[in-house]
Write a protein that binds this DNA or RNA. Structure first.
Lengths: 350, 350
DNA sequence: CTGTTAGCGCGTTCAT
DNA sequence: ATGAACGCGCTAACAG
């Protein structure tokens, strides 16, 4: 088994060429499988020799060297702030499914600090799932200087890059109004950091829907938490332990809703009967759990997001290649499932 | 605001040199902040000029070009099979904390198919969290040809790369024996794919501990599931709905244990009183949840893993740099918390 | 039609 | 502080 040169050194195209007794150009043509327009251009015997040599040496093309020449890294970066959020997993799943057939590798950046990384690192396209106000300038500059961006944010302007919006406002209103059919005492479970971000929108929908229904908002029915699942669980437990506890919880994310369902069950409350819970986001986890989670969210969001990202990643460098970057809006739907079923006059809880 | 060349073209070091009126070498020295041994070598005024020019153009060093010359990508890859597993999140967290101060970016590969990616892609070091038997050959070859690997696996041989083991067997025995102090009817919750992998070891510990205690194993007390949280939840529900349900559940991963706790609560069982649950892995989620999860696991595992990975990533290319690659074993501890407390003769459930 | 030569691209680094 | 070579794979242009 001493056939491989186990020097620990990474073989180069030149070593392969030498071993096969051909030029580096030939090796390149054989291994990348292309020649000029489309004609074969390299004879079978030499191709075999080259392949054998490459195999013996354990040769692997050097992506960095290739990238410097072609300008493509065959990589997309997904900058995901909350990796534990099912939402992030859905993004990853959808992008992976779409990228692999194209020979593109999705790399995940778990850090919220994409500004530093994207400055240095190169990818054919980058998806960013959240933009803090102080990051907007950096975003614009990156796009100006050649970074292909797809940004998920409800407030940022599209300036030279794509912005995906999911217009949460009306959808969230639908969620709260669904609860209003059967409830008066409705609590809101939302991260404390959500003022000014998309969460802010989601909380506002709650406040406005209550006001529109003529219900006075109660401060003690707003459960703020630190953004973690454990925090959501604790906040939900507090809400449901009150003497005149709410009969329904509107959670501004699906993962918070999942925590609320768990908290209710721990307290011996039957979700969908004693208490209703609705989430926001329409994640697969919510669909699969038991009881299944009622929620609002965009339709086909993840697949369309993946398609856009990869269209950008594979587009030729110059402008005028595909459609211009812009804003992509998603319509939202209401998904009525077990955790907050339809309530008629007979089953309403007030 | 028309100061930046908003051509959409990525600026190069040559453009910066031209604008600053210096050579590319000078720009390189200024921006990478190094010159020969340690002497200044570049005057303050020119350094300022260069920095200003770089800023104006929005220059960003091209990582690919840098890598081709230095052989370093300042990147480590984490290949994580089960991204939704808290275990993976702990790995990410620990590596990120250790990598950022070193200027190294951790990139996450959510695909189990690391073989293809690592062939092409380059990183200073790679962590792989699971190796299928058919991937072992590829692993050895990668290591032979210059890829720096750190592998988490209990069975693979260390041949030119590091292997991290956490000798689950004895630790899992401790977990089951802890339950044996207060229980006779102990169920096991484990993924169905676990035969032959580390899960196999974990299941075997259960079987052996029961046998050693003179308890006959019951087939219907083994809850197999598909590896997902939802599957674990369903399997746990089945176990706990039996007429003579188990009084304790030994789950072979922490995330399965979390699902078991949720399932028990849903059924109105008080965890830590009516039924005990113990997990395997000692993840932070288990520590933070309510009730806190009893578990077994290695100590300081994630930090030490991160340290090793980054030591490898930053080591000079040649051999004889740091210690030789080998096997790193982790001792396991028992963490007794609320979900499976100590049981005395007075509180035991048989 | 098959294979080679030569030079590109970009940041780094040695010798001047 | 600079010019020029360097590392690696790609590919247009050229030679047999």
């Amino acid at each position: 088994m001493a056939k491989t040169s186990s020097t620990g050194v990474r073989p180069t195209i030149r070593m392969v060429a030498e071993l096969a007794g051909v030029s580096t150009a030939t090796v390149s043509y054989v291994l990348s499988g292309r020649r000029g327009d489309g004609g074969p251009g390299v004879s079978d015997p030499t191709a075999e020799k080259v392949k054998a040599a490459a195999e013996r040496l354990g040769y692997r093309p050097n992506q960095a060297a290739r990238a410097i020449r072609t300008g493509r890294t065959n990589t997309v970066i997904l900058s995901l702030t909350m990796l534990s959020d099912p939402w992030s997993l859905s993004v990853i799943e959808a992008v992976q499914k779409a990228a692999v057939p194209l020979g593109i590798t999705p790399m995940i950046l778990g850090d919220a600090d994409w500004v530093k990384v994207l400055g240095t690192h190169n990818a054919d396209a980058v998806f960013v799932d959240a933009v803090r106000p102080d990051q907007r300038d950096a975003l614009r500059k990156l796009a100006e200087h050649g970074t292909t961006l797809v940004v998920f944010d409800e407030e940022v302007q599209a300036e030279g890059f794509d912005v995906i919006r999911s217009i949460a406002g009306p959808g969230c209103r639908m969620a709260v109004e669904h609860l209003l059919h059967g409830h008066r005492r409705i609590a809101c479970l939302t991260p404390a950091t959500a003022s000014g971000t998309s969460g802010g929108t989601r909380y506002r929908a709650y406040a406005e829907a209550l006001e529109h229904a003529g219900i006075e908002e109660r401060e003690d029915f707003v459960g703020l938490f630190d953004g973690t699942s454990a925090g959501a669980y604790a906040a939900a437990t507090r809400l449901l332990s009150m003497p005149d506890r709410p009969t329904a919880i509107y959670a501004t994310t699906d993962y918070a809703a999942v925590s609320a369902v768990n908290a209710a069950q721990r307290l011996g409350l039957a979700v969908g009967t004693d208490v209703d819970v609705i989430g926001v986001g329409n994640t697969v986890e919510g669909e699969r759990m038991s009881p299944s989670l009622s929620t609002v969210g965009p339709v086909d969001f993840f697949d369309k997001l993946a398609q856009l990202l990869l269209r950008r990643a594979t587009a030729p460098a110059g402008p005028s290649a595909v459609e211009d970057p812009g804003v992509l809006d998603f319509p939202w739907h209401l998904f009525v499932r077990e955790s907050a079923p339809h309530r008629s006059a007979a089953t309403r809880l007030y």
